[in-house]
Amino acid sequence: MPDQVDASRAVTTERLLAASPGAVFAAFERPDRLARWWGPEGFTNTFELFEFRPGGRWDFVMHGPNGIDYVNKSIFREVEPDARLVIEHVVEPWFLLTVTLTPRGDGTRVDWVQEFATPQVAAKMRPIGATANEQVLDRLEAVLAAGDA
């Protein structure tokens, strides 16, 4: 977790993926790829606006397996190819997601850090977020293993 993150406000997940940082980054940069793995198990996505650049907007709806639609609006704050993404989720619950990609041998260590507005919000989101983030990375890993990222 980056030093500047307040751990009491954060939900963190890390994973070693058997793919290069470039391949992992490529799974983020094209909306058709990203839509295949973004979200927990059973979710699908409809992307309405995807401006993959610093300051660009990302508006989408996550369709839950329970039939509920979840409106998401985000802004890409940082986009460093093959290295780092910072995405601000601007609807409730607000959070800043930092994804750091670090080469590790033939693979990539992914550090996934969601920083919420307060420790109280983070505590409420931690049980949900920890499981959901693992499922998201499982889905990313499957897309990468299939070679269609």
Rank of each mutant, 00 (worst) to 15 (best):
M1A: 06
M1D: 03
D3V: 05
V5P: 09
D6M: 11
D6P: 14
A7S: 15
R9Q: 15
R9H: 12
T13W: 01
R15Q: 10
L16T: 09
L17A: 09
P21Q: 07
F28V: 02
D32W: 00
R33Q: 12
A35R: 13
R36V: 06
W37E: 01
G39C: 13
P40H: 03
E41M: 12
G42L: 11
N45Y: 10
E48N: 15
F50G: 01
V61W: 09
M62R: 05
H63T: 05
H63D: 06
H63A: 08
G64L: 12
G67W: 09
Y70H: 14
V71M: 07
N72R: 09
N72D: 14
N72I: 04
K73F: 01
K73I: 03
S74P: 12
I75D: 04
I75H: 01
F76W: 09
E78G: 00
A83H: 15
A83I: 08
R84W: 05
L85T: 04
V86S: 08
E88G: 04
E88Q: 11
H89R: 05
P93S: 01
P93R: 02
W94P: 15
F95N: 15
L97Q: 14
L97I: 00
G105N: 07
G105K: 11
D106I: 00
T108A: 13
Q114F: 05
E115K: 02
A122H: 08
A122V: 03
A123F: 04
K124H: 00
R126Y: 07
R126T: 02
P127W: 03
G129V: 06
A130M: 14
A130G: 10
N133D: 10
N133Y: 14
N133C: 05
Q135I: 13
L137P: 08
R139V: 02
A142P: 10
A145P: 02
A145F: 03
A146I: 06
